[in-house]
Structure formats: C-alpha cells, structure tokens
Design a protein around this nucleic acid. Structure first.
Length: 864
RNA sequence: GGAUGCUUAGCUCAGCUGGGAGAGCAUCACCCUUACAAGGUGGGGGUCGGGGGUUCGAGCCCCUCAGCAUCCACCA
C-alpha cells in the first residue's frame, strides 16, 4: 500500500543503484536496433549546475524513451579535462596550500591535476546518480584518456599531413593572466568605458603635425608608421614624409593605403603590426618590422624605455601624462568601445604576434557547409539554429589550437635539438634523445571535437564504433554551437566521412527568476542538488524539461518546481486510489470495447488520443507539448472525470460492470506511469512496482502504442452532456449560495438518447432527485437550463422571475451567435472560398441556433 | 554594423501547417465530499506591443515602427 503522501526522498532512495547494478544502463543487446547519445562531457572543474541538469535530463528522457521503444540505447558518459579552467583551479589550490607554483615542474603539476580530476569525477558521478541519468558507465571516457589521446594525436598528425594544420606567426589573442594564447571564440567582446586619445605627431622638417587617434597609447612603442588614405586631400602632401612618434621620439614614415577610412577619427592611423590584426596586414604588405612590446604578463618590455616592467594600464596613464607635458596631447574623449576579455578569467586580452599552431579552417568549414546540402546532413532542432552554425562556418578564421599550458593533450611535434627541424608524428621519433617535444598542449575543444567518435574507439575499428557511430542525437545548449557542435561536425566529416550525429537538439539557458543569466558574481546560481533535496529529482527533471518551448530560455522559478511536485503527488494519489480498490485477484485483460460502459470507452478514447499526441511530440523533442497532453489527461479526463465517475459503477452489483471499470482504471493508470516514466523515472518505478502484475522494472517495459480500435467516440455526446449537466447544477448551487451537497429536484427533457445509468450518475454527482424525465417542463416553476442535447429544470422556489431572466440571457447569446453565423454565410466570398466543411459547419450551427431560439422564444411567451 | 529570439491574463509561459484565445501560479467564492487541503468545485481577469497590408477570415502570413534579450563583428 502506498503512503498517503508522495515523498520523493523515499521514492528515489536506492533505485538508481538498483537499475545500475542490474545492468539496465548497459548497451549491447544485438537483437535490437542501436540508438546512441553521447553526453556533452562536463568540465572536471567543480559542481554541476542547473544548466547541466537541463541538458542531461533531456538526454536521459530521450534515452529512456528510446529504450522503451525497443532500441539498444547507448547513453555514453564522460568528462572533459577543460585545460585552462582546470589548470587555473588547480594552481589556485596549490597556492592556497602554500606551494610555490613557480618552482614546480610539469610532471609534478600533472600529478596534482590528476588528483583533482579524480576528486571531481567522483562528485560528478554522485550528481549524475541523483539526477537519475541512465548512463552506460562501462563505456565512460575522459578527454585525456590514453585512447582519446591516441585519437587526438592521429587527428593532429593527419591534419598536418594534409596541410590543414600549420605552425605560424600571427596575431592571436593573448591571455596575460593564464599566459596562453586563446582562440577567437574564447574572447568575449564587451562594451567597456575607455578613452580615445588624440596626439600630435610632429612632421619632420616642418612646423606641422598629424593628429592621430588611439585607444591604446601604450602600443605606440610598437608603432612602425602612420597611414593615411591616398585619396585624402588633407594629407596627400605628407605621404612619404616622416613624423615623430610622441611616445619615444622615433621617426616613422607616413604611408598611404586604402585601408584607412577617411571619415573615421582623424583619418590618420598609427600602425602597430605586432599588436593589431589589421596593422599586421599593413605591416606585412609594406615589409615593416613587427616589434613586440609586451612581456608575457602584459607588462611593458625593454622596447619601452623607462616604462619597462610597468603594467600596460599604468603605462598608458603615465605615457599620456608625459605626452601631455610635452605638449602633444590634443584631446581625450570618453568613449564606449568593444574590448576583448578572456572567457575564463575576464582579463583584458592583448592581441599579440606569436608563433602558434593553427587549424586551417576554410576547407574543413566548406566541407561541413556542403554536407548540410546532402542527405547526410545534421538536422538542427529547432531548425533556426542551423543558421547560427552556417553563419559561423561561412566566416570562420583559422583556429589557434596551441595553448601554453600543462594540462592537456601535448602536441605531438618534436623539434630536433640540433637542426630545429620539426617532426610531427603520432609516436615519438625513435631517436627521441635528439628531439624535444613541443611543450604546448592543445585547446580543450580540439579533443572535445572528436568526442562522438573518439569515445567509440576511433581510430581503431571497434565494435562500438561500427555499431553506435554516427550517434543519433546530440543535445546541447545554443551557447556552444560554435565551440563544440560545429567543430564536431567538421572533424567528424573529415575523419569518419560521416556527420557525428543525425540530429542536434538545442535547448535554451536556465535563467534566474528575474530572467538574468546565472553567474558566480551575481550569486544567483541554482544548485540542482539543493532543489533535489527539497522537491526530488523527478520534480526538477519535470520542471526543467516541460516549461519552455524548444530552444527558448527559461526562468528557474521555485513555485514551478513545487507545482511539478504537486502534479506528481496527484499521480501518486490517483495510483494509490486505483491500487487500493483493485482486488487481490485482479488480472489485466485485453480490453473488449463491447464490455465497456460508455464512460469507460470515453476515457479509453481519451487515453489513446493522449498516447498518440504524446508520442508525436516526443518524436519531435517537444517535451513541453508532450507533457502537457499527458497533464491534461491526468487531471481533467482521468482524475476529475473518470475516476470520480467510476465510483458509481463500482458501487453497483454488476460483476461485469465492476470488472470493466477495474480494467479501465488499470489501463489508464499503467499508461500514465509509462508515459510519465521518461521524465520522472523514480516515481514511475515506484508506482510500477506496486502494480498487481509487473516486470522486474519499469525500465523493461515497452512504450505505449496507441490503438485505433480503442478510439471509439460513439458515446461522447452523452458523456459530455452528463459532465455539462453536472456542471450546471454545481454552478447553480454556487450562484444561489446553496450548500454543495444540498439535494435538489431536477426535471430533464433529453433531446438525445442517453445511456442506461445516466441518471444514476447525475443523481450521484448533483446530490439530487430527478422527478420528471422526458416531459415538457417549461410550465413548471424553477430555473431552466438549456443545452443542445437536453433541457433541465431545477425546481426552486425562486420561480418564474429568475427563469425568465435566464431565458432572456440565453436568447441574447443565441442572437449574437446567429448574427455571427449569418454574417459569415451571407458573404459570397466565404461560401466560395472557404473549405466546404467549414461552410457546412457554420450552416449546421446556424440551423441549430435558430431552432433553439425558436423553442426558447415560445417558452418565454408561455411564461409571461 | 549584421543576425536571431521575444512582446498573449496580475506574474511565468503555451498556442502545430491561418477557421471565435489556453495552462501553472496568484486572486475571489464555496467545500476537511471515504485517492489527494501540496486538495476539490466554481468565478473574475486578455481591443494577443503600435500601425499598415494580404485573406471570406489574422495571435498565427507580409511590411513597418517601438521596446527587451542574446549572438556575431578588427573600424584606429
């Protein structure tokens, strides 16, 4: 017997371990069709947040749904080493523990990092378990595993051989805090307050000067020339002459190039090839030197004279002051301009010339774009996100993949100690003593990009790779379409000749109750574990996956999680009721419509329709729509209507009637459990285990298939009439301030045939006596209720006056409706152009309204 | 400067290929009716952001304006 109240803690305890130990999560049943999903590997940097929860819950819902549909589902778990993020955290911890991090070696650090990984992997496992994710732990991977490392090395070397990966000196984004290069997308451009400084650059041999504007005066130590537009009449005469750099007195040539915008700033631009991507291009074009003026920590270097060693922003201030004192400051404007920040630590990144490894993107991107026009394309859900992908791919620049870190896949390039020659190979050169391996590691996303196939054993031809790759669906947030989704697609196409997944389901972000992004600085993050403690994992899962449309952001609202828990409590209690009344001897039978009552048939039809609608929406990954169909069935059809009504049949003495009711109740309950199961596996399992007959676990059940044969609507009119009449009486009592259980006298004139027990039901749910049936009731005293299929008179002393009022009101609404119909039907365009059925529908409506109006008018006349 | 999404009840959101607007929470009234008071039965509350257009018919399609949000972008 179930407890009176649904207690998520009790329900959820122990179930996960039981599922896991019985091997239900383990893929490999060769008799079934394979279906695979890989988890987006979370970073081993800390606790999982609510964003992970929505992501993995959707995956788990799909996995459980597909498993029930008879697929051999592989839901593959794993984690990401998260290079920069983890290294920063481990370093921080070391510093806190008093370790002098400047003295530790690479190997020592890596030992610490692996310890860290072990610790956090454990906590992530615990969280996955709490959320109930049906992950196949026998196939768990880590992005730094030996197997994955082999895949990474293979890809690196192959790309290199194909000329798709190269070492080059280019302007990259430098993170001076982590002291590593970053890729473009790891730089966040945000609008910051800043200044536009206007300086005089005196022209050598004249009394004139050029005014040059800059936002970064400190880079003036790296200036090599001043550029103007060749068409600029103001400056034409100066081209070829020289100016004095007011920062250090260097003479710089004035050159002309189309790149400079006549309109912008002063039309004269300083050129710093080593610290600006555009200036770099000009520097290349005209063969200038490219002096680097920063140290790795973005302090000024020896080229900066007395500013050497000074922080870049300090230097900016001091230099502006100096230029001002020298009389070369024209003005300073306050501006708001985009400034690049490191995604990880928010420091201002510095564009810097640097020798790094790059992936040549154009051919890979083109391949990915071309694939979207073929049959093997990746299907984006919702579709619009394909645009995000396309746009990025069309404009992508070469990907800087080397990082000056320790924690990561070390680049498989080896420098000959004598000649400096580079050897790139999967295995180290045989005479390794003559070589030194590249100290840089790869961007974390380089290994994540291989995830769907490296986890399956690639480049080895493994059984898993053959069976589960390409994967069926990938689920992730729209925020990592660039970082991850697109990179998986082009790497996979290049190396496996397949897109890595057939579909990619994109979900929105979880925001706080005010709609703000959750962030550490705001402290508005939600810890899923705390929510689970309060409401249970099922309620959290249900809330997260059913409260927004696909791809749309959602707000975390505590009351909604509670509402989800209330819904589960509703299901719980309906189950408690049904299971409480089923006799010991109950045996599920195939439903035989001919043995069912009209009410039974009505609810079974509603159930089958619900199964159909839920399945349709599950297949479209529209969990909001799917769940709301089920919700409506549970509350309205099953609990409010059928379950209450069924009590009448159960009170009868008719064995057959009673058994039919049992069968119907059971069928509804069982299907509710199975339909809700992918969302809320814990409570579903608990209820399932309490069914009179069941398999070892709900996980072994099949997903309901709707049965057309059971969708019988012949009695719907009668059943709905019953509901309507009951509602009328209830309303009547409330309107007249009568006690809900007060017995009234009703007289009814049916206009359609009703089923045998109709009046029994009506009596029971209106607490009323039915005195006259099937007679003309207009002349009686009381309140009359009009219905297309029946008139009902409630005998009441209030009498005529109220009845007249009611009829008049009814006449007014009918007249409105008739006017509307007539307007439509008198429009020749409507008759001509609207579909036949629609026209007929309106015609029928009109006829019926007119008939009712006629009747009512007659009745009114009689009364007055 | 491009791109996308959003604007519907007091709040948070649904409304599929156009055919008389829904849910949850909140609110009001009445009920401890033998599954559920974390409940039940009812009620109130919306010129669907503004304007224009297409259509017999627009919350839905087109144009336009406004506001909010997000992403992309090297203008010194």
């Amino acid at each position: 017997m179930l407890d009176k109240r649904y207690d998520p803690h009790q329900v959820e305890a122990g179930k996960y371990d039981s599922w896991k130990s019985k091997g239900y999560f383990t893929a490999g049943d060769k008799t079934k069709q394979p279906f695979s999903i890989v988890i987006p590997p979370p970073n081993v940097t800390g606790k999982l947040h609510i964003g992970h929860t929505i992501d993995t819950t959707i995956q788990d819902i799909i996995a459980r749904y597909k498993r029930m549909q008879g697929y051999d589902v592989l839901y593959l778990p794993g984690m990401d080493h998260a290079g920069i993020a983890t290294q920063a955290k481990v370093m921080q911890k070391l510093v806190q523990n008093g370790v002098d991090v400047t003295k530790i070696t690479r190997d020592e650090f890596l030992k610490w990092a692996w310890d860290w990984k072990k610790e956090y992997a454990e906590s992530i496992h615990e969280q996955w378990a709490k959320m109930g994710l049906s992950l196949d732990y026998t196939r768990e991977r880590f992005t730094l595993d030996e197997g994955l490392n082999y895949a990474v090395r293979t890809v690196f070397v192959e790309l290199y051989k194909k000329g798709l990966l190269y070492q080059g000196e280019k302007i990259i984004s430098w993170d001076p805090v982590q002291q590593t290069a970053l890729s473009n997308i790891e730089v966040i451009h945000q609008d910051d307050k800043g200044n536009m400084f206007y300086f005089k650059y005196p022209i050598v041999g004249t009394n004139e000067y050029l005014t040059v504007a800059t936002t970064r005066p400190e880079t003036m130590f790296g200036d090599v020339c001043v550029v103007v537009n060749p068409k600029d009449e103001r400056y034409k005469k100066f081209v070829g002459m020289k100016v004095i750099n007011p920062a250090n007195g260097d003479e710089l040539p004035i050159i002309a190039d189309e790149y400079v915008d006549l309109e912008f700033g002063t039309g004269a631009m300083k050129c710093t090839p080593a610290h600006d991507p555009n200036d770099f291009i000009i520097g290349e074009k005209y063969g200038f030197a490219k002096p680097i003026i920063f140290n790795k920590d973005a302090t000024m270097n020896s080229l900066c004279g007395k500013y050497e060693g000074m922080d870049r922003f300090e230097c900016r201030k001091a230099l502006v002051q100096q230029i001002k004192e020298d009389g070369n400051l024209v003005k300073i404007e306050d501006i708001i301009h985009p400034v690049g920040h490191s995604e990880r630590n928010n420091c201002v990144v510095e564009p810097m010339l640097s020798k790094q490894w790059f992936v040549k993107m154009r051919p890979l991107a083109d391949q990915a774009l071309a694939n979207q026009k073929k049959s093997g394309k990746v299907n984006f859900v919702p579709e619009r996100f394909e645009k995000v992908f396309t746009q990025w791919m069309e404009n992508v620049e070469d990907w800087c993949v080397s990082r000056q870190l320790w924690w990561g896949h070390r680049i498989p390039a080896y420098y000959n100690k004598k000649t400096g020659e580079v050897v790139v190979s999967v295995e180290p050169p045989k005479d390794i003593e003559n070589y030194e391996q590249e100290s840089d590691v790869l961007d974390t996303w380089f290994s994540s990009a291989l995830w769907p196939f490296s986890t399956m054993g690639w480049p080895n031809k493994t059984a898993d790779y053959d069976r589960y790759f390409p994967t069926n669906v990938l689920v992730t947030g729209y925020d990592i379409i660039f970082f991850w989704v697109s990179r998986m697609i082009f790497q996979s196409l290049e190396f496996t000749k397949h897109a890595p997944f057939k579909e990619v389901v994109i979900h929105g972000l979880v925001r706080d109750a005010q709609g703000r992004k959750m962030s550490k600085s705001l402290g508005n993050g939600i810890d899923p574990i705390q929510v689970i403690e309060q409401y249970g994992a099922d309620a959290l899962r249900y809330f997260l996956t059913t409260n927004s449309t696909p791809g749309q952001d959602m707000r975390y609202i505590d009351e909604k999680v509670q509402a989800s828990a209330n819904y589960l409590n509703k299901i719980w209690n309906s189950a408690r009721y049904v299971l409480g009344i089923l006799p010991e001897s109950f045996k599920e039978e195939e439903l035989d419509l001919s043995k069912l009552s009209p009410l039974d048939r009505w609810v079974i039809n509603r159930l089958e329709t619900t199964i159909k609608n839920v399945t349709y929406n599950m297949d479209r990954y529209d969990f909001n729509a799917a769940s709301s169909h089920l919700y409506n069935f549970v509350y309205d059809d099953f609990c409010s209507n059928y379950l209450e009504m069924s009590k009448v049949a159960l009170n009868s003495n008719d064995e057959n009637k009673i058994n039919a009711t049992y069968q119907t109740l059971f069928k509804c309950l069982k299907n509710i459990i199975l339909l809700i199961y992918p969302y809320t596996p814990f409570i579903a399992e608990e209820l399932y285990q309490n069914l009179p007959a069941h398999l070892e676990s709900v996980m072994l059940e099949s997903y309901p298939l709707f049965d057309k044969k059971l969708m019988d609507t012949t009695n719907d009119k009668e059943v709905e009439l019953l509901f309507d009449l009951i509602k009328d009486v209830r309303n009547y009592k409330i309107d007249n301030k009568l006690a809900p259980n007060l017995s009234l006298q009703l007289s009814i004139n049916f206009k359609i045939k009703v089923f045998d027990d109709f009046l029994t039901y009506l009596k029971r749910f209106t607490f009323s006596d039915i005195k006259e049936v099937g007679k003309e009731i207009v002349n009686s005293q009381g309140d009359l209720f009009m219905h297309p299929h029946a008139d009902m008179l409630i005998n009441n002393e209030s009498g005529k006056a109220e009845m007249i009022e009611r009829i008049k009101k009814e006449i007014a609404t009918l007249e409105n409706e008739i006017a509307r119909c007539e307007k439509m039907l008198s429009n020749p365009n409507f008759i001509d152009k609207a579909p036949k059925e629609k026209v007929e529908l309106e015609q029928n409506k009109l006829a019926s309204h007119k008939k009712n109006l006629e009747d009512l008018t007659a009745k009114l006349k009689n009364l007055q």
